[in-house]
């Protein structure tokens, strides 16, 4: 005889409502298969509800909404995340389940991110956490470290709220100010060096249709291929391009300079990078130089630490 689990109790208590929800969802999505959805409830939803604690009806409601919103096609990785974080799902079912699903979606959508690392680190470092807020703070900082470069500023804002030692565990420092001041900081690398290449030809799955050029707008790096313009986010952990068609070049005094033959100079130090020779555009701010050349659809970054 099958054990009456919290999930089964919730289903029994709100059978009519869940059935009505499913019928409405199938009304809009003809491909929503009843048997497949039942299997999804059994394999995906049930273990999480049973592990979550809290009010099983609230947890079931939240996961049912999430499942219907995605036509029962939730990624396997989300199942692992929600199961790992089941006690937090039990605390605030709708908020935690949707937030973690969204975070995972953003990580999986951004090229170059390490989703597996985010899941593993979240599982490891969340063990000592007590509240939903602290879990979400940790998730943001980890998402940044795992490659969502666009999250840098907001992740640094919440990084100081992490427990002592947690930040050091994956950035090698507890000093948030240091991470904020130097986007390319690492405990080992020093001097002038190429730190990142970002962007690719659209024909090969990248962003740019032509080799881009770079410029600063309101102190922030932008790139254009002539047809469109993007805001460029880049640091030691990742890079991202976001459409920003209203940006226009604005002059700003350079902090690093680039000669025609590829020599980068900063504070009396100089180093030649042959791949930067014949640059079509370059711009610098703080300790970063961004360079484009006619030979590649990537933006190259040089840092000085």
């Amino acid at each position: 005889m099958e054990e009456v689990t919290p999930f089964l109790k919730a289903l029994a208590a709100h059978r009519d409502r869940y059935n009505a929800q499913f019928r409405l969802a199938r009304h809009r999505s003809k491909n929503l298969d009843a048997n497949a959805f039942l299997e999804h409830l059994r394999v995906f939803v049930s273990p999480i509800v049973n592990a979550a604690g809290g009010d099983p009806i609230e947890v079931t409601d939240a996961l049912m909404d999430l499942s219907l919103a995605t036509h029962g096609r939730l990624p396997v990785s989300l199942h692992r995340v929600l199961l790992n974080q089941a006690r937090f799902v039990g605390m605030d079912p709708a908020r935690v389940s949707v937030a973690l699903a969204n975070a995972l979606h953003h990580l999986e959508s951004e090229p170059g991110t390490t989703t597996h690392k985010w899941i593993t680190y979240l599982e490891y470092y969340s063990r000592s956490l007590e509240t939903v807020e602290s879990l979400l703070d940790l998730g943001v900082v980890l998402a940044w470290v795992c490659g969502l470069a666009a999250l840098r500023e907001s992740a640094l804002d919440v990084a100081s709220r992490l427990a002592p030692g947690t930040l050091r565990g994956f950035t090698f420092t507890d000093d948030v100010d240091q991470l904020r001041a130097d986007p390319w900081w690492s405990p080992t690398n020093r001097g002038l060096r190429i730190v990142r290449k970002l962007g690719a030809f659209r024909g090969f799955g990248g962003t740019f249709t032509r080799p881009p050029t770079v410029f600063l707008h309101e102190g922030r790096l932008h790139a254009t291929d002539g047809a469109h313009t993007w805001r460029v986010h880049a640091d030691a952990y990742g890079g991202a391009l976001r459409r920003a068609d209203n940006a226009t070049p604005q002059h700003q005094a350079p902090t690093l300079t680039l000669s025609r033959d590829g020599a980068v100079s900063c504070n009396g130090e100089s180093r030649v990078f042959r791949q930067l020779a014949g640059a079509t555009s370059w711009t610098s701010w703080s300790n970063t130089l961004a360079v484009t050349t006619p030979w590649t659809h990537s933006i190259m970054f040089v840092a000085h630490s």
């Binding site: 929800q21 409405l24 809009r28 219907l68 919103a69 096609r73 999986e108």
Partner: peptide, 8 residues
């Protein structure tokens, strides 16, 4: 990929 189009 998450899809955000359902009846609800």
């Amino acid at each position: 990929m998450l899809v955000n189009q359902t009846y609800r």
